[in-house]
């Protein structure tokens, strides 16, 4: 590999246009000891990156700690503990809200009345909100599926149903609006909540 070719590669490297293979050529080239002085900064750069790539999480008890955590986490309750994680998040949200409340001048208090009609979003980062939504959906889904899998519980429901078979094909059945509305009318009558 001539210096000319290397210079050319370096140029496209700086433009973010080199492929991974080309970057490997550069890395190999700069790992040599006998480089012209002008390449010193590049050599530093590539060697530095290489050294950083070999950093490892050095903790002999890592796996043990981890499995302990998982156990604790699981024991806490498979589903409800998931809600507890929101402590931290809601704590932050609470502080934010508090800041809003504290820094709104008294004169502008009607503003806060407006705010009382609209409950503040817990998250301001859509990604975070998205992740939490998906998690909530998965929990609901998991419970619903647990329910449909548990025949015992289905029997309870069947009492309120005209046709037990419909419930067994619960997922498909839900698409069917007619069945569902019958189901509903029936339930309202029996509902003693």
């Amino acid at each position: 590999m001539t210096c000319n070719e290397i210079d050319k590669l370096l140029k496209s490297y700086l433009e973010g246009e080199t492929s991974l293979a080309e970057e490997k050529i550069l890395r190999d080239f700069f790992s040599r000891g006998d480089l012209p002085d002008k390449y010193k900064p590049y050599a530093d750069m590539f060697r530095g990156f290489g050294a950083m790539a070999s950093v490892q999480l050095e903790d002999r008890h890592f796996e043990k700690k981890w499995s302990k955590k998982v156990k604790l986490h699981t024991r806490h309750g498979r589903s409800l503990s998931f809600f507890s994680q929101w402590y931290t998040i809601t704590g932050v949200a609470a502080t934010l809200l508090l800041a809003v409340v504290l820094f709104v001048p008294v004169k502008k208090l009607p503003v806060i009345n407006l705010f009382s009609h609209k409950i503040e979003d817990t998250f301001d980062d859509p990604r975070q909100a998205y992740a939490e939504t998906v998690r909530a959906l998965l929990i609901i889904s998991d419970k619903i599926n647990a329910g449909t899998n548990q025949m015992k519980d289905l029997e309870k429901l069947d009492e309120g149903l005209e046709d037990a078979g419909k419930m067994l094909t619960f997922n498909k059945g839900l698409k069917d609006a007619n069945k569902l509305s019958k189901f509903s009318e029936n339930q309202v009558d029996h509902n003693n909540l």
């Binding site: 790539a53 490892q56 999480l57 981890w66 955590k69 998982v70």
Partner: peptide
């Protein structure tokens, strides 16, 4: 993957101890 996660975490939080804890959390 813990090492990769750890390096990435270090890069973001710039705190090796915290990065270790965060990797634990991700793995949980």
């Amino acid at each position: 993957l813990k090492d990769k996660m750890y390096r990435f975490a270090c890069r973001i939080v710039e705190d090796t101890e915290e990065a270790q804890d965060l990797v634990q959390e991700v793995l949980v």
